[in-house]
């Protein structure tokens, strides 16, 4: 079921943990140390997706690279670049056209395809952001009204969690073999 024609275009760098049960479609590059849980969905529909190093993509997360409705021509395909140290928590749906480093997308949040995410942003659990905007650095969005505040610093990296997952996941899931060499 998962051996779709696009599968071959998936590039995984050594050190990345991509579970076999994740759904990856289209041209996707996954950087060193990034963990992709089973049943995470990454769809490169409008163009390639490049995910940086040490990102954590949890279950039921959906990262979709979708063209905005007003420019449906597939001629010049933009690349969705997701920086490093980003955390996508369970059931987050992210369609942003550009994502920087050290961002946290909390559970069940939704980021529309007109929102550009810079660095160190936190999108709170259940927050839906759809209006066209560029999120400034270290911004924190929280609460049912998507209240916004400026944070003191970037959210801390989930090093401990990532280390544990790197040990645990291969014991219970099939891992896709890295097919790229270290740069």
């Amino acid at each position: 079921m998962f051996s779709l024609p696009g599968t071959r275009r998936i590039k995984i760098f050594p050190g990345a943990l991509v579970c076999e049960e994740s759904k990856l479609r289209g041209d996707i590059t996954i950087g060193t140390g990034t963990i992709v849980h089973p049943s995470a969905i990454i769809i490169a529909e409008a163009g390639p997706i490049i995910i940086g190093d040490w990102c954590l993509i949890e279950e039921q997360v959906k990262i979709v690279h979708r063209l905005p409705f007003d420019q449906q021509n597939n001629e010049n395909t933009p690349v969705l670049i997701i920086g490093s140290n980003n955390v996508f928590e369970v059931d987050a749906v992210v369609e942003a056209p550009k994502i920087g480093n050290n961002n946290v997308f909390e559970s069940k949040c939704f980021v529309g395809n007109k929102v550009t995410v810079s660095n160190g942003c936190t999108i709170g659990a259940g927050c839906r952001i759809t209006d066209e905007q560029i999120l400034p650095e270290n911004v924190i969005i929280f609460g049912s009204n998507c209240q916004m505040r400026e944070g003191l610093d970037r959210p801390g990296p989930q090093t401990l969690q990532m280390e544990t997952l790197a040990k645990m996941l291969p014991n219970y899931h099939h891992i896709k073999k890295p097919n790229m060499k270290k740069e």
Partner: peptide, 9 residues
């Protein structure tokens, strides 16, 4: 834990 406000802010 919710909005990441801390006494350091």
């Amino acid at each position: 834990q919710f909005c990441r406000w801390s006494s350091r802010d």
